[in-house]
Design a protein around this nucleic acid. Structure first.
Length: 920
RNA sequence: GCCCGGGUGGCGGAAUUGGUAGACGCGCUGGUCUCAAACACCAGUGAUAGCAAUAUCGUGCCGGUUCGAUCCCGGCCCCGGGUACCA
């Protein structure tokens, strides 16, 4: 073999490990650069070719930045808590830590083979007590802080207690759940238990009885981002609503900052949009509608206060706290039936029946705040308890849902904004003149809104309000394999453990299942209590707990006394480049931004946003292959002939198919079922069908990087993954193309070797042509890396090697910089060539080559000449010629005369160095 | 429904402050080497017509702006992702 990649790659991986080539430390002499990959959950299936895509891109960038003179932090670790290991533990009784450790080992072996420049000295694992100590520590800080809306900043809870002691809670602008007002005197006379209950409404980590997403199959609650269309994202199990006492994080306090922060990060527009939608800011007003014959008012939120005169009925959610209070005896039974029906309908059913109108009149009436007219109050499940105030003023003329409801129940529809035709449909647009609206008549919508809000505020019956869709994050899980809460209960009041007791380690249990009484698995642990005998919290933390600040821990991973030292955070600051999947848009990427903002408020982190630039690598899709079985037989017909038979399509392992041609012997051995299979061939071959699908075991289209490395080497794999297409695009994996990259690697090798595979590089003077090839490649590669266009960079390398081969160039002055140039992409072969060139230091220490314009300058410019926009011929003209000279040269040419056919050109357009266009 | 992306050869893709459409690679066809194969190398390869030079068409569809449009504008179709009785 001319280039023995197996031996050579192994040799340099050992060298890098032994020489600690990738171990870095704070170095104030150099500018820092932090390149982070989203750390993986180590699943039992190992890595497939889709996983390393982002890691390869970030590795190329890290190596490049390092060679450009930066001190690059490029760590890797494991998001080690997760459901699969626990589900496996439930089935087999094996401790999830054992499964996890085994999977991590496998991941590490696979990662090592690809030749990454990770500083493994900084590895973190979220399930490691020395790591989750700081997850627990942060939770304690969240518990001990509240959010001041005025300052837009977290503050110590002790400060709030002092305020309460001095002046009670009246007039405070603090993120909290609804709390009755109390005076300083009242506060000071409260029992501790009562004080603690009140404080719970203000804490950033708090315990609350709320509606949660309960997944019976997983036996746990889930956060909103873990539920999609009524099913759990992990596992796809049904999720229902249930009222439970849970820990929550008051992420909603940070809504405004989470939204504004998006304007200051370099992320894709689509990802930022997803987050903006998820946060869901809407401006409007809350308005109080007094309920007739009751001493209470219904508070509604609306973004269209201008349409208040068009409000002809009210709707409250079935779960609304006033539903029972205001219902008249006459309607009590019907309301009870409706609420029960609505409650029993699963989320899934509600979604499926979106178009169906349902609701029930309560018998109660509100009084319109301006017209004083009575307005009927309905209960309907198209109003959600969890959004706004759980009640609306319905304006059927200008809201399509209210319109459908009004039509169904035959309620009046009053037009208040002109511009639509309400006989046919509601007019929802925010433009038009106000009509039928008393003091608003004649105004444009945009002017009516502030006017009506001012009037509401003057009368004290409403106010301007900004509402967010974002909900507080449910932070408890009724599972075993997660971080224990540093919490114990004393008289049912939760208390935080003293920091000296951290980490609170996960206890052993006999089974990984809930107890008979339905408590979480931790309740099975013996002595699950403090030294003083107080019971410890039995819930564990969710998956996003451990991943919310791991990027900070990498900066100072062995620090036992702080999450991160001021020295480390001052130097490393934040993540400059973060690469990972877009599936974390509404989970991890929101939570960690929130988490970081909190840590910023309490002085731990130093940047408001943790991830300066973020790139979502596209998903690698699978390319499945099919065979066609003639129904009822064991005969398989080639794709082109399948129409002549009645066939069924069967997935076949892509690893026994090459260029869509089936390896028949391998197929027979693949599964005993096919041992005696017979085939109907086309030109002696069995042609398979193909389709792009998700890469999955069940489709038999999974490609393992280990197999490819064994066959082609890691450098080839790295290059091919990049060559597939733009980093951010979803693209199908087709192993067939890898041969082209493999050929390129061997061609690169041959450039430095003679026909006998002996290293042979001369020290002759490079020709201008050779220098030009080198320097235009340096220019192109540098530009491409900086814009993360790795696929075009690989093409540029191929062109470069093709041209140097053509020139038979084997000169050291060209081949030396070339080795450095390619080293971020193909580090093994580059390192080998570098040492063959006589260097002793590792190539990773070298400076990246810089191109020189003088070598690239062209003497001649090639002009395509077109007539009426159609290119007809090309002409070379000396560089630097004026437009006039170009015009004269071109018009004098025979070919030009041929196309002119004796006519005089009407106009000649000359774009210097680009094109000549002659208009006839 | 709404919000983001994206539609270019047989395939992955390249080229945009509007200037030679299809770089590079795969596949395919033919050839050199070989007893044969593998490897390697050479030539061709958007479609149509033609022996050929060449011509016409061609970047999802329809229209517009322009000397010139894959790129800009208007209207539509399709695919992918996000989100949803969010008031």
């Amino acid at each position: 073999m001319e280039y023995n990649f197996t031996t050579i790659e192994q040799k340099w991986q050992n060298f890098w490990r032994e020489n600690k080539s990738y171990q870095i430390d704070i170095n104030t002499e150099k500018p820092k650069y932090y390149v982070l990959d989203m750390f993986p959950y180590p699943s039992g299936a190992g890595l497939h070719v889709g996983h390393p895509l982002g890691y390869i891109a970030s590795d190329i960038y890290s190596r490049f930045k390092r060679q450009k003179g930066f001190n690059v932090l490029h760590p890797m670790g494991y998001d080690a808590y997760g459901l699969p290991a626990e589900q496996y533990a439930i089935q087999t009784g094996q401790h999830p830590a054992i499964t996890t450790e085994r999977n991590i080992k496998r991941y590490r072996e696979q990662l090592d083979k690809i030749g990454f420049s990770f500083d493994w000295n900084r590895e973190v694992q979220t399930c490691d007590p020395s790591y989750y100590k700081w997850t627990q520590w942060t939770f304690i800080q969240l518990f001990n802080h509240y959010f001041d809306n005025e300052l837009q900043k977290a503050q110590p809870i002790n400060r709030l207690i002092k305020i309460f002691e001095k002046s009670g809670n009246e007039g405070l602008n603090i993120a909290c759940d609804p709390v009755d007002t109390f005076s300083a005197n009242q506060w000071n006379n409260m029992a501790e238990q009562q004080q603690q209950t009140i404080l719970m409404n203000y804490r950033l980590a708090y315990l609350s009885e709320t509606m949660v997403n309960w997944c019976p199959k997983l036996g746990t609650v889930l956060a909103n981002d873990e539920v999609k269309e009524g099913f759990s994202v992990r596992g796809g199990h049904l999720v229902e609503k249930k009222k439970m006492q849970q820990w929550l994080l008051r992420i909603t306090a940070y809504s405004e900052r989470l939204l504004n922060g998006l304007d200051h990060v370099d992320w894709s527009e689509s990802l930022k949009e997803i987050q903006r939608n998820w946060i869901g800011r809407s401006e409007g007003a809350t308005i109080f509608f007094p309920v007739k014959n009751h001493n209470l008012s219904l508070e509604v939120f609306t973004t269209r206060p201008d349409t208040i005169f068009g409000s002809t009925f009210m709707v409250v959610a079935p779960e609304h706290e006033y539903t029972n209070q205001i219902t008249t005896p006459e309607y009590a039974q019907k309301i009870k039936e409706y609420v029960t029906m609505a409650r029993n309908r699963s989320e899934r059913e509600r979604m499926a029946e979106v178009k169906t109108v349902s609701g029930q009149f309560t018998g109660a009436y509100c009084q319109h705040p301006f017209s004083k007219n009575p307005i009927p109050v309905y209960v309907a499940d198209y109003v959600l308890a969890g959004y706004g105030t759980g009640a609306i003023m319905a304006v059927p003329a200008h809201d399509s849902r209210d319109y459908a409801f009004a039509k169904y129940f035959n309620l009046p529809i009053t037009e208040v904004v002109s511009g639509g035709n309400i006989a046919y449909e509601s007019y929802d647009a925010k433009t038009g003149k106000m009509i039928n609206s008393d003091f608003l008549d004649g105004l444009e919508v945009e002017d009516a809104i502030p006017k009506v809000i001012n009037r509401l505020e003057d009368k004290g019956i409403g106010s301007r309000r900004i509402n967010f869709r974002l909900r507080d994050a449910i932070f408890s899980r009724q599972r075993y394999w997660g971080e224990p809460f540093p919490v114990y209960y004393k008289n049912n009041i939760p208390h935080m453990l003293d920091e000296s007791k951290l980490p609170l380690e996960l206890p052993e249990v006999d089974k990984y299942l809930p107890t008979e009484s339905g408590e979480p698995p931790l309740a099975r642990a013996t002595n699950w209590e403090t030294d003083e005998g107080y019971p410890l919290e039995t819930n564990t933390m969710p998956g996003f707990a451990g991943s919310s600040a791991y990027y900070l821990r990498y900066m100072d991973p062995h620090n036992d006394s702080e999450l991160v030292s001021p020295k480390a955070i001052q130097y490393w600051q934040d993540v400059d480049l973060y690469i990972g999947g877009a599936e974390h848009a509404t989970g991890h990427l929101i939570y960690s931004r929130f988490w970081n903002k909190f840590l910023f408020d309490i002085g731990v982190s130093v940047k408001e946003e943790p991830f300066k630039k973020l790139i979502n690598q596209g998903m690698i899709q699978g390319r499945s292959n099919f065979v066609y079985r003639v129904k009822g037989t064991n005969t398989y017909v080639s794709k082109g002939l399948r129409k002549e038979y009645d066939t069924m399509t069967i997935h076949v392992d892509v690893n026994i198919v090459s260029n869509d041609i089936l390896d028949i012997d391998a197929f027979k051995k693949w599964n005993p079922e096919y041992k005696d299979a017979e085939f109907i061939l086309e030109d002696q071959k069995y042609h398979c069908g193909w389709e792009i699908e998700k890469m999955s075991k069940s489709f038999h289209n999974v490609v393992n990087p280990d197999d490819l490395i064994q066959k082609y080497g890691a450098d080839t794999l790295r290059l091919y993954e990049m060559f597939l297409g733009p980093l951010e695009y979803a693209k199908p994996w087709d192993t067939n193309g890898i041969e082209g990259v493999f050929r390129f690697i061997r061609k690169l090798w041959r450039l430095y070797h003679n026909a006998n595979n002996e290293f042979e590089v001369g020290d002759g003077q490079p020709t201008p042509d050779e220098l030009k090839v080198l320097h235009k490649t340096i220019k192109k590669i540098t530009e491409d890396i900086e814009k993360f266009s790795f696929n075009t960079a690989v093409s540029a390398f191929m062109i470069c090697i093709n041209e140097l081969t053509e020139l038979k160039c084997n000169k050291q002055e060209i081949l030396s910089p070339l080795a450095i140039l390619i080293s971020p992409f193909a580090p093994h072969i580059a390192e080998e060539l570098w040492h063959l060139l006589g260097n002793n230091k590792s190539i990773v220490e070298e400076n990246y080559p810089v191109y020189k314009e003088e070598y690239i300058a062209e003497e001649m410019d090639l002009y395509p000449v077109s007539f009426n926009g159609k290119t007809r011929f090309k002409v070379e003209i000396a560089a630097g010629a004026t437009s006039k000279e170009v015009e004269e040269t071109v018009l004098k040419m025979d070919e030009a005369q041929k196309w002119l056919q004796g006519k005089t050109p009407r106009k000649v357009i000359i774009v210097p160095k680009k094109i000549v266009n002659i208009v006839v």
